[in-house]
């Protein structure tokens, strides 16, 4: 059987989990989902409705309110007996907790898989996506993190059963102090957005990044950035897309003023359609873009915004 560790904030089930559920179906074994949290009934309901889930295990306890690795790993370890696969998304959440589970079980972990060949064989990127390794396991317990963007979302189903877990493990050596969430306003979150508008060093200043903001609002897109833009202080670092930041794969990725350093490309090359707007015709981003526009972004982006809003007005007046 498969145990998937749900990522959530006690209110909303993170979409990354839905991708992991879809990936797990390739293993052709019954799927259980663990929701460890505090007052997390909405999350449990959402997990029950994920197509393919046989049962949702609920560990609802104040001790799990912030899902700290120290105690959540021990909880998963205690629940692990009947499972041959333990999966979580390869997000900051899954990456933090799952290796700790693996070490408790004395098994190695397979990180960040992008494909499942069969029950023993998996594919994962190495060297920032510059190579892909096929790995094989003969372990009876497999601890795996899954790159969410490599698998589709699961569908929905009628609610499956739940089972309450009455194990209370305090995190005695770790204390949660605070979380400062980045405010994305009305825009979607980077991890779940269908369209991402990303800006690079070419934007030239923090003030001018509002141009990216306006285009994102027009398209109801998430805002992203290259490492150069983050390092220059144009945007906070959690908007960084790339090997050392977030890996995204939206339907449409618009790279503006981004040259396309290999580290950046590793974070977005699986997007369905890539648009690049850059003044430099030799920028490497054009090698992977479906549609390239060699232009000064300060001319092209306002024109793009105007043309999209004009089209919107036409449609709404029809």
């Amino acid at each position: 059987m498969i145990l998937i560790v749900a990522e959530h904030n006690n209110t909303v089930l993170n979409n990354a989990t839905l991708h992991v559920i879809e990936a797990a179906k390739k293993l052709q074994l019954p799927i259980h989902v663990l929701v460890a949290g505090s007052k997390c009934t909405d999350v449990v309901s959402a997990a029950q409705e994920c197509a393919g889930v046989r049962k949702v295990l609920i560990a609802d306890n104040d001790a799990y309110a912030h899902q700290l690795a120290e105690n959540v790993a021990k909880l998963i370890y205690q629940l692990s007996t009947e499972y041959s696969y333990i999966l979580a998304p390869a997000t900051c959440f899954g990456k933090d907790i799952l290796p700790r589970v693996a070490a408790l079980l004395d098994v190695e972990q397979i990180s960040d898989i992008t494909d499942i060949i069969n029950q023993q064989t998996f594919v994962r990127p190495i060297y920032a996506g510059n190579a892909y390794a096929t790995v094989t396991t003969s372990l009876s317990k497999n601890v795996i993190t899954v790159r969410a963007t490599s698998f589709p979302l699961c569908g929905s189903q009628d609610k499956c059963d739940t089972q309450a877990i009455d194990i209370n493990i305090p995190a005695s050596n770790t204390e949660f102090i605070s979380i400062n969430s980045t405010d994305t306003g009305k825009l979607p979150d980077l991890n779940s957005a269908k369209i991402v508008v990303a800006g690079g060093r070419g934007i030239s200043s923090k003030d001018k990044f509002t141009l990216i903001q306006q285009l994102a609002e027009q398209l109801h897109a998430a805002i992203g950035a290259s490492r150069a833009a983050v390092d220059a202080g144009f945007v906070p670092n959690d908007l960084q897309i790339g090997q050392t930041g977030k890996v995204v794969a939206p339907d449409l990725y618009i790279a503006i003023g981004i040259s396309g350093a290999i580290q950046h490309i590793a974070g977005m090359k699986d997007s369905k359609v890539i648009v690049a707007i850059n003044r430099d015709p030799d920028a490497p981003i054009f090698d992977i873009a479906d549609y390239g526009l060699v232009a000064d972004l300060f001319d092209a982006v306002p024109e793009l915004i105007a043309s999209l809003s004009k089209a919107e007005r036409l449609i709404s007046s029809e």
Binding site: A131, A133, T136, T137, L139, F286, D287, G292, V294
Partner: peptide
């Protein structure tokens, strides 16, 4: 416990149009 059997270059994305 886990063996790497093959290492391959990433699938190439073909350049589109300008």
């Amino acid at each position: 416990q886990i063996a790497t059997t093959t290492i391959q270059p990433p699938p190439k994305r073909k350049a589109g149009v300008k």
